[in-house]
Write a protein that binds this DNA or RNA. Structure first.
Lengths: 236, 236, 236, 236
DNA sequence: GATGAATGAGTATTCATTCAT
DNA sequence: GATGAATGAATACTCATTCAT
């Protein structure tokens, strides 16, 4: 009745022999999204995956490991895809940034990422190992990619002199938080809010404004920056 | 007979018959911080508050309502305090912005806010009413305050022409996310990370760079920047 | 309906505030007897004790600890009682032995001991600590008591020179095993078997025959035996 | 694909298509020994037998029947062997008894019998049929064999007049219990205990002392015994 | 015959909530 | 008002058994 696979005529068993893990992870993601980690009942996940409760334990030793895998699979898979679209730059750095953040924004707005983000913030801190994994593989990686773009802009003179690591982190935070908010709002008050794409443009404008080189004074740039402590960006 | 020993004069409880609710809320906040909503046991909260389990039900109809109150009380109380420090502007708008964000940042870094933030992201979506409350009383309010400052800056010509509502939201997101990240990191790798205050400066620099008027007076550039604390961005 | 306390009119709760542990242990003993350790369901124990499942956990941390306590309480309590009846010797050592073994036999035939014995043999080996406890407090103690009697007999010349420790063990084994068998048989084929008391006499005769002094006074044989109950061995 | 690797030539299984049942029973015995009936998992038994879980069901309808067969096969097979060594008497009856009990003791000390004994005591009572089988085929048979020896001794005058059935049972209990205890102790405190063989000598001495004819009065023996209830030993 | 993936009934344990004292 | 003993619904996990291959 509630089976997800209406067009399958197989008599229940052996639906997709090697797809099981993916099937389960997908179902788990959905249930975790709706109820959080501790609120999700294994039985619901099983039902949603169209399998029996016990079957989950053939592939995952327990609920927590299943949770870990959900986080891992979902984010990493998407990150790889996103990265591919990014690694071949075209146009000015400003254009590259726009292309990159647009693609990234797209990902951040997927239900998968939204869910993972909530889980990460709400329940991950009980899993220190997972936190470490997440920080290295998602957060740092994302910062690094942005850092590469920013550095290019600084090198080409399109951007002002930046403390690339900190600005990368800040830009990252900007994208993530605003994507989450935009989606949450969209879900809450679908009628009255700034559409997702428009929010993106606002964010993009904001961050470009923050990093672009100041139009005029090429003259003083070098001198004034010298007076500033080394580990801060000194503009120009 | 075997347990409570009625004639022992414990110096702990019986303190402040009218403080009970606050006592409970404070204890609940601490336990929620450590274990999340579903992980928190009423018995732990009671023990931490120095009262019996049943007593909680004299003040709160159930666990969820207690949770709501924790969110409400904690954030609102702090917000009021924070706002007071902000409402009396002094100096240039840029200086006002810095003062405002510094104070706000202070609040965002308190354990109370950190906890509430995690609870809000991780478990609030099961409480639509609370979400609405949170959005109106915390998110919107925070945006509005920033918006007032930004508008002043636009009016005075210190800032470029801005879409105040969207930029307010963006600035807000910047502060919250970076405060949360900074605190999380501080908790995780206390040795190796950019200290909290430094992160604040980076964020502040970034957002001022994004909003400041574009074409600065090339002449005054050097001078005006001199008035600003040395380790901040001075560039036009 | 299945409540054990038919004449209680209390509305379920607060039946016997301090009797709880004993109540639970008694119920557990009965259920363990019927189904063994792993076969016993906590719910059955609770129902038999007239309480709710969760209540058990207010007094015992888990099923295994409950099991331990059942063993401990049941055997030790009975042992103390049995010992009291024994410590005041009267008559010849042979008579003392008979009195002792009779009393001990009585205990060995109680359903409590029968149950404990089965549990001990069948399921105790998973609880090394309990085994140690059982060996020191039941087995060794039982051997020691018999040893005292035997030594007296050796000293008085009624018994032959014996290796007291090993004979104590052997006598102990004789009583236990035959008591268990007698009870088992009685339960199984109540119609056709040697009654319990008769088995006891047979065992008692056997062991006295094994320990009595070898070369009896051929002269008194007939007379002395006359003082002994007719169905007992009267020889020398 | 990820697990069984069909083209690997495992040298373990596929051995002896007709040995399967025995293979399984042996594996089951080992697992039952380690974990008891309810603690034993069919998967473990299968793994130990080098076959797949389902295969067990080709030979045994369910776990309980497998258990029954384990008991049956193990004890009966050994009994037959033991009996053969016994049926050809040599020497005095006292010597025959020693030879018999020694051989029997050997069997009682095998891990197989030890395991079966524990299972029988701990879990057999849920299988009334099996109990009946065990009583007729092991207990009674064992008693009967001893009874034959005892009768020979009585007839030859080496033993006193005995109630053969009851003394058989008693002697049997003596051997079994002491063998079990000796082995258990050996397993528990291997360093400090009377060695198995020495225990046997003690038991043998004890039982011979209990049954041997009293050195002197060969005269009265026959007459006095006539007055005693038929199924009891009347001594002398 | 053999396999082992799949099933789902069965249970120890937890904990929010109640209520007699 | 306070208490905390008692309740019992809820749920992760196990494992005997089945059956498509």
């Amino acid at each position: 009745m509630s089976k997800t696979d209406p067009h399958s005529s197989e008599p229940r068993r052996r639906r997709s022999p090697e797809e099981r893990p993916r099937q389960i992870i997908q179902a788990a993601l959905e249930v975790f999204e709706e109820r959080g980690l501790s609120g999700a009942r294994l039985e619901d996940i099983a039902r949603r995956a169209g399998i029996a409760k016990g079957t989950i334990y053939l592939y995952f030793p327990n609920k927590e490991e299943l949770f870990s895998e959900v986080i891992r699979q979902t984010v990493i898979a998407r990150l790889d895809i996103a990265q591919l679209q990014i690694d071949s730059p075209t146009g000015t750095v400003t254009e590259q940034v726009r292309a990159y953040t647009a693609s990234w924004w797209e990902f951040l707005c997927t239900p998968e990422f939204q869910t993972v983000h909530r889980l990460v913030h709400g329940e991950l801190h009980r899993f220190p190992e997972l936190v470490r994994f997440y920080v290295s593989n998602v957060v740092s990686r994302s910062h690094a990619l942005i850092g590469r773009l920013l550095q290019r802009g600084v090198d080409s003179g399109e951007f002002r002199a930046l403390d690339v690591p900190s600005v990368s982190r800040i830009v990252s935070s900007l994208l993530i938080t605003n994507a989450v908010w935009a989606c949450k709002m969209a879900a809450f008050r679908p009628e009255a809010l700034t559409p997702r794409d428009q929010v993106f443009e606002q964010v993009n404008d904001f961050l470009l404004a923050a990093v672009r080189a100041q139009t005029p004074q090429p003259v003083d740039a070098g001198t004034s920056s010298a007076a500033v402590p080394p580990h801060h960006f000194t503009s120009l």
